[in-house]
C-alpha cells in the first residue's frame, strides 16, 4: 500500500539559515500522526512544503504515490490543510466560500456533504456571516470545514486548537477521530502534548529542523519516560541502604519519604523482594509516570545542550 505521505531527505533554508535539515519519515494510510517540536523546530515549514506553500530546497515529498512537485495537482487533491494562521477573506459569506472551495480542487460542490460538515461543525447559524464577524472558535471550525470540503485523503492540521477553548478542543478532536475512523489519514501538530499523546498513533519530534524521535506514541513514552515509586516510611531513614543504589534513590520529608526510579525495561519483582528484605516499614506508596511532556522536554533540551 502506498504511503499516505513519504518525505525523503527534505531540506529548506531561509536566508541561508536552515529550517529543515535532511528530514525523512513516512506516514501510513489511516494513522493519526503527530509532528511535535518547540517553536522554530521546523514543523510548519515541513507542513508548508508538503502542502505546496513553501518551495523545497532539496529532497522529495510524495502523497499516496504522487510527487508533490511533478504531480502537484494530483497531490494537492489528496490533501486538506488547516493552516496555523487564521486565513480571512471577507468578500464572501462562509456558505458561499464553502461552495466555491470544492471547485478549486476540481470537484463539484456536493450539497449533501457540505451540509453534513456544516451540521457536524455547528456552522449552521453562521452561514450568512462573513469570516471577520465569527468568533475565534468558529473561524477554526470554518477552516476545518473548508479543508474537508473536497474529501481529502490526508488532513493536515497545523496547530488547529491554538487559542481554542477546552470544550471546542474536545469537540474538534472527537471530530478528527471520527473522520480518521472513516478513512482519512491525519497529520497534526499541536502544542498540547497531552492531546498528542491521546490522539496520535505515532509521534515524530523535531528540534532545530531535525528529527529527534519517531516512534509509536506508547513506545516513545515508555522508552523515555521516568517511572518512580514513592514510599512513606513509618520511621525516618538516616541513610539509604546501598542495595537500592541502582534505583537512584533520594530521601524527602525529613527521611520519611523514599523515592526510587523504576526500571523501564524490566519488572519490579526484584525491587519488591529487596524492599521486603530491608524491613523498611512502609505505611503507603505511590507510583508516578512522566508523560509525553517530560519526554518532549528531555529530547528537545538534549538537542539544545
Amino acid at each position: 500500500m502506498e504511503k499516505a505521505l513519504h518525505i525523503e531527505n527534505l531540506s529548506k533554508s531561509f536566508a541561508s539559515v536552515p529550517a529543515v535539515k535532511d528530514l525523512s519519515f513516512d506516514i501510513e494510510q489511516g494513522e493519526i500522526f503527530g509532528l511535535l517540536g518547540p517553536n522554530g523546530a521546523g514543523k510548519s515549514t515541513t507542513i508548508n512544503m508538503v502542502s505546496g506553500i513553501s518551495r523545497i530546497d532539496a529532497g522529495r515529498i510524495s502523497a499516496f504515490g504522487f510527487d508533490n512537485r511533478s504531480q502537484y495537482q494530483q497531490t494537492r487533491r489528496m490533501l486538506g490543510v488547516v493552516h496555523q494562521e487564521i486565513v480571512i477573506d471577507n468578500f464572501f459569506t462562509i456558505d458561499l466560500a464553502l461552495k466555491l472551495h470544492a471547485g478549486y480542487y476540481g470537484v463539484e460542490d456536493d450539497p449533501k456533504w457540505r451540509q453534513e460538515l456544516i451540521e457536524r461543525l455547528d456552522l449552521g447559524p453562521h452561514l450568512g456571516k462573513v469570516m471577520l464577524t465569527l468568533s475565534g472558535g468558529m473561524k477554526r471550525r470554518f477552516m476545518i470545514a473548508k479543508a474537508l470540503i473536497h474529501r481529502p485523503r490526508l488532513l493536515i492540521l497545523d496547530e488547529p486548537t491554538a487559542g481554542v477553548d477546552v470544550e471546542l478542543r474536545h469537540n474538534l478532536w472527537e471530530f478528527v477521530r471520527e473522520i480518521n475512523r472513516n478513512g482519512t489519514t491525519i497529520l497534526l501538530t499541536t502544542h498540547y502534548l497531552e492531546e498528542a499523546e491521546q490522539m496520535c498513533d505515532r509521534i515524530a519530534i523535531m528540534n532545530h529542523g531535525e528529527l529527534v524521535a519517531l516512534e509509536p506514541t506508547r513506545d516513545l513514552v515508555r522508552r523515555l519516560s521516568r517511572r518512580s515509586l514513592k514510599l512513606w516510611l513509618d520511621k525516618p531513614l538516616e541513610s539509604i541502604p546501598a542495595e537500592l543504589d541502582s534505583y537512584h534513590p533520594r530521601l524527602e520529608g525529613h527521611g520519611r519519604q523514599l523515592i526510587l526510579c523504576l526500571p523501564t525495561d524490566s519488572g519490579v519483582s526484584e525491587l519488591l523482594h529487596q524492599l521486603s528484605a530491608l524491613h523498611l516499614g512502609i505505611n503507603d506508596f505511590e507510583t508516578d509516570q512522566s508523560g509525553l511532556e517530560d519526554v518532549f522536554l528531555q529530547l528537545t533540551r538534549a538537542g539544545d545542550a
Binding site: 487533491r77 471547485g103 480542487y105 470537484v107 463539484e108 474537508l148 473536497h150 472513516n182 478513512g183 482519512t184
Partner: peptide, 25 residues
C-alpha cells in the same frame, strides 16, 4: 457520516472556472 474516500470526479477546468467565478463575484 459519509465515507471520506469518495472524492468526486476531477474536472481539470473546474479550478479555473471556480477562481474566475470568485474573482468576478
Amino acid at each position: 457520516m459519509s465515507s471520506f474516500n469518495g472524492q468526486g470526479v476531477f474536472k481539470p477546468w473546474l479550478p479555473f472556472t471556480t477562481l474566475l467565478r470568485k474573482e468576478v463575484l
